[in-house]
Design a protein around this nucleic acid. Sequence first.
RNA 1: GCCGCUGUAGCUCAACGGUAGAGCAACGCAUUCGUAAUGCGUAGGUUGGAGGUUCGAUUCCUCUCAGCGGCUCCA
Length: 649
Amino acid sequence: MAGEKIKIQLAKGPAGEFDTGTDIATVLKTLAPDDRNRPVCAKWNGKSVDLSFSITQPAEVEGIPLDSPEGEDILRHTAAHIMAQAVKELFPGTQVAIGPTIENGFYYDFDTERPLTPEDLDKITQRIKEIIKRDLPVVRSEMPREEALALFAGRQENYKVELINDLADEATVSLYTQGDYVDLCRGPHLPKTSLLRHFKLLSVAGAYWRGDEKKPMLQRIYGTAFARKEDLKKYLHMLEEAKKRDHRKLGRQLELFEINDTAGGGLILYHPKGALLRWILEDFEKQEHLRRGYQPVIGPQILKSDTWRISGHYDYYKENMYFTEIEGKEYGIKPMNCPAHMMIYQSKTRSYRDLPIRFFELGTVHRHEKTGVLHGLLRVRGFTQDDAHIFCLPEQLTDEIIGVIDFIKDVMNVFGFEYTLEISTRPEKSIGSDEDWERATKALQDALLRHDLSYEINEGDGAFYGPKIDVKIRDAIGRSWQCATIQCDFTLPERFQLTYVGSDGSEHRPVMLHRVIFGSLERFMAVLIEHYAGKFPLWLAPTQVVIINITDRQLAYAGKLKERFDAAGIRTELDGRQEKMGYKIREAQMKKIPYMVIVGDREMESSRISLRSRDRGDLGTREVEETLQMIRTEIDERRDGTETDEIGT
RNA sequence: GCCGCUGUAGCUCAACGGUAGAGCAACGCAUUCGUAAUGCGUAGGUUGGAGGUUCGAUUCCUCUCAGCGGCUCCA
């Protein structure tokens, strides 16, 4: 840098001439002295770098402010390093593994001498605050691989050594140092620790090294950090809100279901309200399927193991299945509905004119799930799928896939879910030929491409018998859930020797799609509970209306009203207890019942009612007939309840 | 399955080596009330289960079951 000058262009700003080797911090200060965003990192020709990065060639640079999405990601990354430093200071002998940022936060995995407890989080938080106060510069350095290996080996950081060993093709590696703490890291990072201000450690958990259950279990600490205090507060508040929507909590509060120790984990006992909700969903699905040319079928709960051998489940799914024995013969409890549907297809000669054949079953299946994965209604051992198998001609495949996607779209619209699509490809443990897998995967892709639907690829995530399209829905507070899936299968028709007679008079093999819309009724109900925060739209609410009399004088009138509501097909309860009206209203509100019909002397004398909405409060008095019609319409239109509809007059 | 935490009345929680208590719910009585809690009273528990330490265990230890936060896995 013998006085040589280079031109540096500020993105969306002026350019200037600088000495070779000038660092970005200086460049930014010179070209944008008034920038109130105070950059913490920068983009150099589109690549994220530290402020200390020195420029040796003409370039375009741009400051990254702390409160930008990228700045916040860097902030979290540095927070992870500072946390690691704190843990190492507090627990000498701890080895650090990896500490990446994740959506809305970060974590770091440690190999500690003793497991970390929630109380340790407070201590670590205090130490992090100290390190922030020390205002340590975070310094980048580079060194040859071998040197770095020796450095981390000398510091007994075996996980880092393993990581460097896997970076075989890189000649040098970059390190970041603050105080005594050194970490292997690509960067960039904040220039100094004092820039971390608003953070919170959230939880400790076990996590396998490199996500491999055969490798050692490490201690993971999750945390989050934000550029602005309000944003941290908002995020923590959102976590609280999500907790309030927890379907396990609401499931108990609203008396929907229970999971009973004595009955066993992962097995759902539906209480009357929950069973009613499920009936409503099932009725809805039955109607929708009949409308779309599906035929109902029902398979048995257990099938002889001969079946599972033919289907391949015996070899590829056995560890997820339960077995029993009848007179010396082994039977498997069904984990999937397909084999029975295959047999029903097989039961007679099918013509190409019959295809596509669409078999639908609300099929209850049981799968062995490890204890640790059970989670309310979201992950259970016994569940009911809204399962269908579509048998079609190869040339019908695309249309059938599109038909299913349209079906999914219609259903998700009813509940107000947005969704995205993913294609999952062949997993390691799978059956069928490579050609079939390729054909099947291509069929799914073609269908999506032909209808201009964008999707992401999920390598190796398919079912053992075929690739799948997964539908990820987004709920009211932005979380995503996997429910619907479409799987293309050339293998099972082969294994079950399914045929149809073609126009040429000879036998051909049909192609099959497996598909679910809700996925499982249990999981979908959990998602609905959390999506609506328990405030089900009228058409789904187990109790739609509660009639509240103010004094005993109106009890008979209230009883007559209930009869009229019942006759109109509205799910109505009468709260005739000798309690104050305010108390009954409060209870109805807490049970999240959509409408309250309140009758006192005034209403009784005029043969009217007073209506109160769960969401909109007192709606005033009105005619009974008008109310019945208004409610009926809202039910029939399956309004999702979020829109503000004009009530009556 | 793995790591950590937790398990007390129907629910939410207290007591934490000295033999279990509150609010809500339930039940009874009184109250007959106008849009989110009327008052009084009654009943309710082998402290998840089994074993151990101790004069004594809800409390400490071991095992086991279940739940929670994650990991792996998944509809």
